[in-house]
């Protein structure tokens, strides 16, 4: 029985290890490629140990950029992506927590209708409503602005639903105790709901930051200036140059750089998850 379990464990770990290898290998290749010069990558026999061009590649990528395709240093693109991702994550948390608070704790006419209208937006991601959204953003003169990048992506229901579900698990007595303790609607929100929502907020932040960071179609449509392009667009442009050789070492370095902020966000936010899980109890 014990033996049996041992073998099953070994088998399970083997399968997992193979899975990890399959996922991790391309990432490793990208990191590897960011340490060679273009010629080594292109000749098709790239060694599996890192080369000596890392310093040169990262310096050029960050501060000069791919000279023929994107014409902007990648640090600029990262800043753009970062502002967009942060804007979406924070904006979404703000809007969601407030709308969920309204839907759960206030009785107003057409409350259910309001909730269902919010709910329905789940079925309308940006890609589906892209034409009207583009039209509105263009008419408002928001093309090539951060506001234009951020605002349309904030409007969707995932966050509202998440907070609504969470608020519904908070016992009514907590609200009633607050009322008796003299806390009005705003104090209850600030002193009780917000602290209890930290974990949910951290989760939503991670999801939305990565969602924003990885946006492709929307930034592609509404940004035309070089200094507004995001890193995802940048990578795409580097790979499809028409009149010149792809600068693979720059593209791969950019790809590696593009992975860094999401990884940091996950690692950093993990602390809040753990803290939140340990501290809150309903």
């Amino acid at each position: 029985m014990v033996e049996n379990r041992r073998y099953r464990n070994i088998l399970a770990y083997l399968v997992l290890a193979v899975g990890v290898l399959i996922v991790a290998f391309p990432v490793y290749l990208a990191i590897l490629a960011s340490t060679f010069d273009a010629a080594t990558i292109i000749n098709g026999n790239m060694p599996l140990v890192p080369g000596d061009q890392a310093g040169e590649n990262y310096y050029r990528t960050l501060f000069i950029g791919a000279s023929r395709s994107t014409r902007e240093p990648v640090s600029m693109m990262m800043l753009n992506s970062f502002i967009m991702a942060m804007g979406i994550a924070i904006g979404k948390i703000l809007i969601s927590i407030l709308s969920a608070y309204a839907v759960v704790y206030y009785k107003f006419p057409l409350r259910r209708t309001a909730f269902w209208i919010i709910f329905i937006t789940l079925m309308l991601p940006v890609e589906v409503r892209i034409y009207p959204t583009y039209k509105i953003v263009a008419d408002l003169g928001l093309l090539d602005t951060y506001t234009g990048l951020i605002l349309p992506l904030i409007a969707s229901a995932t966050g509202t639903l998440l907070f609504r579900q969470f608020f519904m698990t908070i016992p009514d007595e907590l609200l009633e105790a607050s009322k008796i303790d003299g806390a009005g609607a705003f104090r209850f929100f600030k002193d009780t709901l917000l602290p209890l929502s930290v974990t949910t907020m951290a989760a939503l932040f991670v999801i939305q930051f990565i969602y924003g960071w990885n946006q492709y179609l929307w930034p592609l449509l509404i940004t035309t200036k070089d200094n507004m392009q995001t890193i995802v667009i940048g990578i795409k442009k580097m790979l499809t140059t028409q009149d010149a050789l792809t600068e693979w070492q720059i593209a791969m370095t950019t790809a590696v750089l593009a992975m860094v902020p999401p990884v940091f966000v996950v690692i950093f936010m993990q602390r809040f998850f753990v803290k939140g899980l340990v501290e809150t109890e309903k």
């Binding site: 016992p171 007595e173 009633e176 009322k179 002193d191 009780t192 209890l196 809150t280």
Partner: peptide
């Protein structure tokens, strides 16, 4: 009159303590 201004205090079955 609002609960807070009625000069009462209430103890609930599930205690309703603020968890945080």
């Amino acid at each position: 009159i609002e609960p807070a201004d009625r000069d009462i205090a209430m103890v609930f079955q599930n205690y309703a303590l603020y968890p945080h």
